[in-house]
Every structure is written in C-alpha cells, then in structure tokens.
C-alpha cells in the first residue's frame, strides 16, 4: 500500500497535465464541430467520391464527419496515440525508476519480495490509465452532448473507451516489460518510444498500400477502428482478446524478468 500511494503521488502532476491536454483536444475539436454541422453540404456524397488513399493523405477519415458520431470517431486515433505514449512511458519508468534514482538498495532491501513492490507499482499504473480514460470519457460525453441536443452518446462513447482502455493496458504492459528487461530507464523509454512510433508509422502504411495490409496484425493501432466503434457499435472481440492475452503475458514476463534482475545501485 505504501508503494502504491507513493507512486500515485509521484505521478499526480503528470497525470493532471495529460488529462488537461486531453480535455483541451476534445474541447477544441467539438467546439469546431458546430461549424461543420451548420455549413453542411452533402458531405456524404463528397466523401464517397474521395478514394480512401486520398483521404489518408489529407488526414481525413473515411467517415461522415458532419454527423457528430462520425466526427467524434476521428478522435479515436488521437486518443490512441496520446494514451499509448502516456501508458508506455508510465510503464517503462515506474518499474525502473529506483535504479535511475540510485535508491534501489533502499527499497529492495526491505523485508518484502520483489513482486510485492512491482504489483502496487503496476496497480498504480492501471489506476492512472483508468483515470485518464475516465477523464476522456467524461469530457467526451460532456462536449458531445453540447453539440448533440444534450445527447452525449454514452453507449457509443463507453464502447470506444473500453477499446481505448484495452489498448492502454497493452501499452502499460509493454512499457513495464521494457522497464524490467532493459538496462536502465533511458533505454526502456527510448525503446518504448521507438516502438510506439514504429506502430504508428506501420498503421499509416497499411492504410496506404493494401498489399501490405496483412501487417495490420503487427500494429495495435489497427486493432480497433474509431468508425466501427462509434457508428456500428462494434468492438472487435478477437482484437480485444488478443490484446488482453498479450498484455497478460507481458505483465507476467515483467514479474519474471524483474525477479531475476540484477539491481544496479
């Protein structure tokens, strides 16, 4: 409990900043939506005429963004990116920070086993990403309802947030694993950052060139689609199961690797 509390306290400021940024993005995006909805030409027809690749090149989704749900679904990509950076960095740092701060001797010579230190740290991580998720949820419902005659689309947004949370969990686990396996915090965060960038770039590439679409499986950013979640109310069950299993494996490996780890002073 003491470790958990300490980690929560240590991360409260950064969590606050992340949440503010997130709320700002949702606010800025949804405020602008009104303009889209008002000046609405027949967006559907226009977009239908656009080939998918062009839409990607111009950074537009393939959905009808004149409807509030369609408009909001575009945000899912942004949420994924921010949530991924937040969660992966949290995981990488939280596991390795004692060695970075040269106080590993202090905490790991206490009469507790290593997993008793790591578990509350990871729990703090889960709570942090959950808060991030909840703030996103709250802000989304609030700002959507402002522009949708008071209807916050709670069901659709909930489903989207569930998908987001699964992704967050995956990235947290990934970061934690790097923190446990790699030599130090710097290596862990660098590798994690490189991988997130790699995932992102791959997710763009598979959209662009359909012959490499099979690589989709390699990038978590392609496991859920904003449009499917917000418009068709569909959360891919297979994707969710795969991500959860992989996250679980990563968490398990984190414990194993950390138990074997030679701690540096």
């Amino acid at each position: 409990m003491n470790v958990f509390k300490k980690e929560m306290k240590a991360n409260i400021k950064s969590l606050l900043i992340w949440c503010c940024a997130q709320v700002f993005i949702i606010f800025a995006g949804m405020t602008k939506y009104q303009g889209f909805a008002d000046s609405q030409v027949d967006m559907n027809a226009l977009f239908a005429a656009f080939p998918k690749e062009i839409m990607i090149i111009f950074g537009m989704g393939s959905v009808d963004i004149s409807k509030v749900a369609g408009f909001y679904s575009v945000f899912f990509l942004y949420f994924m990116l921010l949530a991924a950076v937040h969660a992966v960095m949290f995981g990488a740092v939280v596991v390795s920070k004692e060695e970075r701060d040269h106080c590993a001797d202090f905490i790991y010579t206490r009469p507790v086993r290593r997993f008793q230190v790591i578990s509350p740290k990871l729990l703090a991580g889960v709570i942090n990403i959950l808060i991030f998720n909840m703030v996103t949820f709250g802000a989304s419902v609030f700002f959507i309802s402002q522009h949708n005659h008071g209807d916050g689309l709670v069901d659709k947004v909930s489903l989207t947030m569930l998908a987001l949370f699964i992704l967050q969990l995956f990235f947290l686990a990934l970061g934690a694993l790097f923190g446990a396996v790699l030599k130090n915090t710097k290596m862990a965060t660098s590798t994690a950052a490189g991988l997130v960038m790699g995932f992102f770039i791959l997710s763009v590439a598979v959209d662009l060139y359909d012959k490499i679409a099979f690589l989709k499986i390699l990038t978590p950013f392609k496991y859920f689609e904003g449009a499917a979640l917000m418009i068709n109310d569909h959360l891919s069950f297979t994707s969710a199961v795969i991500l959860l299993i992989v996250s679980f494996v990563f968490f398990a490996l984190t414990f194993v690797a950390f138990n074997r780890r030679d701690l540096s002073t």
Binding site: L81, L82, H86, R100, T189
Partner: peptide, 21 residues
C-alpha cells in the same frame, strides 16, 4: 527532470495531435 523522453514524447505528440485535428 528525471527522465527526458516522457516529457518530450508527450509534448510533441500533443502538438502533433492538435495539428492533426
């Protein structure tokens, strides 16, 4: 500052997403 990358990744991505938006 204890670890650099979370700060720089965070800031850059937030700006990038504002740009995407």
């Amino acid at each position: 500052i204890r670890t650099v990358l979370p700060i720089s990744m965070g800031v850059v991505f937030i700006f990038y997403i504002i740009h995407l938006l």
